[in-house]
Lab assay of single mutants.
Amino acid sequence: KEMRNAYWEIALLPNLNNQQKRAFIRSLYDDPSQSANLLAEAKKLNDAQA
C-alpha cells in the first residue's frame, strides 16, 4: 500500500518531467522498501524545479 501511494504521489508531481517520474517509479519497483525515501527525494526535486 505504501508503494502504491508513493507511486501516485510521484506520478502526480507537477514539476517533474516524464523521464524523471519514470526513473523514480522504476526505483520504487526495484526496492519497494525505499518508498518513503524515494517519495521524499521526488518531492525535493519537484520543489527545486518549481
Score class of each variant (00 low, 15 high):
residue 5 N to P: 06
residue 31 D to H: 12
residue 34 Q to G: 05
residue 23 A to C: 09
residue 28 L to S: 02
residue 35 S to E: 13
residue 7 Y to D: 02
residue 2 E to N: 12
residue 39 L to N: 01
residue 46 N to F: 01
residue 6 A to H: 09
residue 12 L to N: 15
residue 43 K to E: 04
residue 44 K to C: 08
residue 20 Q to K: 02
residue 20 Q to L: 03
residue 49 Q to C: 06
residue 13 L to E: 00
residue 18 N to H: 14
residue 5 N to M: 13
residue 2 E to H: 07
residue 37 N to S: 09
residue 10 I to C: 01
residue 37 N to A: 06
residue 48 A to W: 11
residue 39 L to Q: 03
residue 16 L to G: 00
residue 41 E to M: 10
residue 47 D to R: 09
residue 1 K to I: 12
residue 38 L to G: 01
residue 38 L to D: 00
residue 41 E to H: 07
residue 49 Q to S: 06
residue 10 I to S: 00
residue 2 E to Q: 11
residue 3 M to Q: 14
residue 4 R to T: 15
residue 39 L to M: 09
residue 36 A to H: 10
residue 37 N to G: 10
residue 35 S to Q: 10
residue 22 R to S: 15
residue 1 K to V: 11
residue 25 I to V: 05
residue 46 N to P: 01
residue 34 Q to H: 09
residue 46 N to L: 00
residue 15 N to M: 05
residue 26 R to P: 01
residue 5 N to E: 11
residue 35 S to L: 13
residue 35 S to R: 11
residue 11 A to F: 13
residue 33 S to M: 09
residue 42 A to H: 00
residue 18 N to I: 13
residue 30 D to G: 07
residue 4 R to S: 14
residue 2 E to C: 13
residue 24 F to S: 03
residue 27 S to P: 02
residue 45 L to A: 04
residue 35 S to V: 12
residue 2 E to M: 04
residue 35 S to F: 08
residue 15 N to K: 04
residue 41 E to R: 09
residue 22 R to T: 14
residue 36 A to D: 13
residue 48 A to P: 02
residue 43 K to I: 10
residue 34 Q to D: 07
residue 19 Q to M: 05
residue 13 L to Y: 05
residue 30 D to K: 05
residue 7 Y to R: 13
residue 1 K to Y: 02
residue 41 E to I: 06
residue 10 I to Q: 00
residue 9 E to G: 06
residue 29 Y to N: 14
residue 30 D to L: 12
residue 24 F to G: 02
residue 46 N to C: 02
residue 18 N to P: 13
residue 3 M to P: 11
residue 40 A to V: 08
residue 36 A to W: 07
residue 48 A to E: 15
residue 42 A to Y: 02
residue 34 Q to R: 08
residue 22 R to P: 02
residue 2 E to W: 01
residue 34 Q to S: 08
residue 41 E to A: 12
residue 34 Q to T: 06
residue 45 L to V: 11
residue 32 P to L: 04
residue 33 S to P: 04
residue 45 L to E: 03
residue 45 L to Q: 05
residue 9 E to V: 12
residue 37 N to L: 11
residue 48 A to F: 10
residue 42 A to K: 00
residue 40 A to D: 11
residue 49 Q to V: 08
residue 39 L to A: 05
residue 47 D to L: 08
residue 23 A to S: 13
residue 38 L to Q: 03
residue 9 E to F: 14
residue 46 N to I: 01
residue 48 A to D: 07
residue 36 A to N: 09
residue 13 L to T: 01
residue 47 D to S: 09
residue 39 L to C: 04
residue 4 R to M: 15
residue 7 Y to N: 03
residue 17 N to G: 04
residue 17 N to W: 02
residue 43 K to W: 05
residue 24 F to K: 03
residue 14 P to D: 04
residue 31 D to A: 07
residue 27 S to K: 14
residue 35 S to H: 10
residue 19 Q to I: 09
residue 41 E to L: 07
residue 39 L to F: 03
residue 50 A to D: 11
residue 32 P to Y: 08
residue 18 N to R: 10
residue 27 S to H: 08
residue 23 A to L: 08
residue 8 W to L: 15
residue 40 A to L: 11
residue 22 R to Q: 15
residue 50 A to Q: 09
residue 15 N to C: 06
residue 12 L to S: 13
residue 2 E to P: 07
residue 21 K to W: 01
residue 32 P to S: 04
residue 11 A to W: 14
residue 11 A to S: 14
residue 26 R to S: 15
residue 36 A to V: 12
residue 29 Y to F: 15
residue 26 R to Y: 11
residue 38 L to Y: 04
residue 36 A to S: 12
residue 34 Q to W: 04
residue 14 P to Q: 08
residue 21 K to H: 01
residue 25 I to T: 03
residue 10 I to L: 08
residue 33 S to E: 09
residue 45 L to H: 03
residue 49 Q to G: 06
residue 25 I to W: 15
residue 7 Y to S: 12
residue 48 A to S: 10
residue 14 P to R: 05
residue 15 N to S: 07
residue 26 R to W: 12
residue 44 K to N: 06
residue 27 S to C: 05
residue 24 F to Q: 02
residue 26 R to M: 15
residue 13 L to H: 04
residue 38 L to A: 04
residue 26 R to F: 11
residue 14 P to E: 09
residue 21 K to S: 01
residue 6 A to E: 05
residue 36 A to Q: 12
residue 28 L to R: 00
residue 2 E to I: 14
residue 15 N to D: 04
residue 31 D to S: 09
residue 45 L to R: 03
residue 32 P to D: 03
residue 17 N to T: 12
residue 1 K to L: 09
residue 6 A to S: 09
residue 5 N to F: 11
residue 4 R to F: 15
residue 32 P to E: 05
residue 14 P to W: 02
residue 7 Y to E: 15
residue 26 R to Q: 15
residue 4 R to L: 15
residue 12 L to Y: 09
residue 37 N to E: 11
residue 1 K to W: 02
residue 18 N to F: 11
residue 22 R to I: 15
residue 47 D to H: 13
residue 28 L to D: 00
residue 46 N to V: 01
residue 1 K to N: 10
residue 31 D to V: 04
residue 43 K to F: 04
residue 35 S to N: 08
residue 27 S to M: 07
residue 50 A to M: 10
residue 4 R to C: 15
residue 33 S to H: 09
residue 25 I to D: 02
residue 3 M to S: 12
residue 33 S to F: 05
residue 10 I to Y: 00
residue 49 Q to T: 06
residue 48 A to Y: 10
residue 28 L to G: 01
residue 25 I to N: 02
residue 23 A to R: 10
residue 20 Q to C: 07
residue 33 S to V: 04
residue 47 D to I: 09
residue 8 W to M: 14
residue 27 S to L: 14
residue 18 N to G: 11
residue 43 K to C: 03
residue 30 D to S: 09
residue 31 D to M: 06
residue 36 A to I: 08
residue 15 N to Y: 11
residue 2 E to V: 06
residue 26 R to A: 13
residue 6 A to P: 10
residue 30 D to P: 02
residue 14 P to T: 07
residue 25 I to S: 02
residue 25 I to M: 13
residue 1 K to A: 12
residue 32 P to C: 04
residue 49 Q to N: 07
residue 29 Y to K: 14
residue 37 N to F: 05
residue 47 D to V: 08
residue 43 K to Y: 08
residue 33 S to K: 09
residue 4 R to G: 13
residue 41 E to W: 08
residue 7 Y to K: 10
residue 49 Q to K: 05
residue 19 Q to N: 11
residue 48 A to V: 10
residue 7 Y to M: 14
residue 11 A to V: 12
residue 23 A to D: 14
residue 21 K to D: 01
residue 39 L to K: 04
residue 6 A to K: 09
residue 40 A to W: 06
residue 10 I to F: 02
residue 9 E to T: 06
residue 25 I to A: 04
residue 47 D to G: 06
residue 5 N to A: 12
residue 26 R to V: 10
residue 1 K to E: 15
residue 6 A to Q: 06
residue 21 K to V: 02
residue 27 S to N: 08
residue 27 S to W: 13
residue 26 R to C: 14
residue 44 K to T: 05
residue 16 L to K: 00
residue 11 A to L: 15
residue 22 R to W: 14
residue 42 A to L: 01
residue 30 D to Y: 07
residue 18 N to S: 14
residue 29 Y to C: 11
residue 2 E to F: 01
residue 25 I to H: 10
residue 13 L to F: 05
residue 39 L to H: 02
residue 48 A to N: 11
residue 20 Q to F: 02
residue 31 D to I: 05
residue 38 L to M: 07
residue 45 L to W: 03
residue 1 K to R: 07
residue 45 L to K: 04
residue 6 A to T: 08
residue 8 W to A: 14
residue 22 R to G: 15
residue 36 A to R: 09
residue 49 Q to P: 03
residue 40 A to R: 08
residue 5 N to Q: 14
residue 40 A to P: 01
residue 12 L to E: 13
residue 15 N to G: 06
residue 33 S to W: 07
residue 20 Q to Y: 01
residue 44 K to P: 00
residue 15 N to H: 10
residue 8 W to R: 14
residue 16 L to N: 00
residue 15 N to V: 02
residue 46 N to R: 01
residue 15 N to Q: 04
residue 44 K to E: 07
residue 10 I to N: 00
residue 26 R to H: 12
residue 16 L to H: 00
residue 20 Q to S: 02
residue 38 L to E: 01
